[in-house]
């Protein structure tokens, strides 16, 4: 008899927690935008953009960022190349200049690692960011 109650309470707990998790996700998230693949802009040398993409992967940038739906969806980078110029992008990558103020302390700390990049790697990464001009469909102008 008591065993039955245990199963009931355990079931209720599991269901309650799942419902709360669903509610949490539903309340927090509007429908996920379906991202289109990013297109490198013609003006950027494809080799440099390719090298930047390699740096992006090697540095594990996808742990905090997503491009075209790949990676951590919290901070998508789609369209960032259209919003920021190269100098701004460099600041955001390194957490320097205006970006240092704008970034949360934790994020600024994480970005310290990028200061160890070779100049050529950083240039390539900036070029790759600059190439991300496509916004995910469904998002308006910002």
């Amino acid at each position: 008899m008591r065993e039955l109650w245990v199963r009931i309470v355990a079931g209720i707990t599991g269901a309650l927690v799942l419902l709360l998790a669903l509610a949490f996700a539903g309340l927090q998230s509007p429908p996920t935008p379906v991202a289109a693949p990013a297109m490198p802009a013609a003006a950027l040398p494809p080799a440099l953009v390719g090298a930047g993409h390699a740096v992006y992967e090697a540095q594990g940038c996808a742990m905090c960022h997503a491009i075209a739906g790949e990676g951590n969806p919290r901070y998508p980078l789609d369209g960032v190349g259209g919003r920021r110029d190269a100098a701004e992008l460099r600041d955001w990558i390194l957490a320097t200049g205006a970006a240092e103020e704008a970034l949360p302390a934790r994020a600024a700390r994480m970005k310290q690692d990028y200061r160890a990049l070779a100049g050529s790697e950083l240039d390539a990464l900036v070029a790759y960011m600059k190439s991300l001009t496509d916004r995910p469909p469904g998002e308006g102008e910002r």
């Binding site: 927690v17 709360l20 998790a21 949490f24 996700a25 927090q28 998230s29 429908p31 951590n72 969806p73």
Partner: peptide, 18 residues
């Protein structure tokens, strides 16, 4: 609440906390 990041992402985070 910080902005959402997609239903499944947030669902996963909620499962972790739960």
């Amino acid at each position: 609440v910080p902005p959402g990041a997609g239903f499944w992402w947030d669902f996963s985070m909620a499962l972790g906390f739960a």
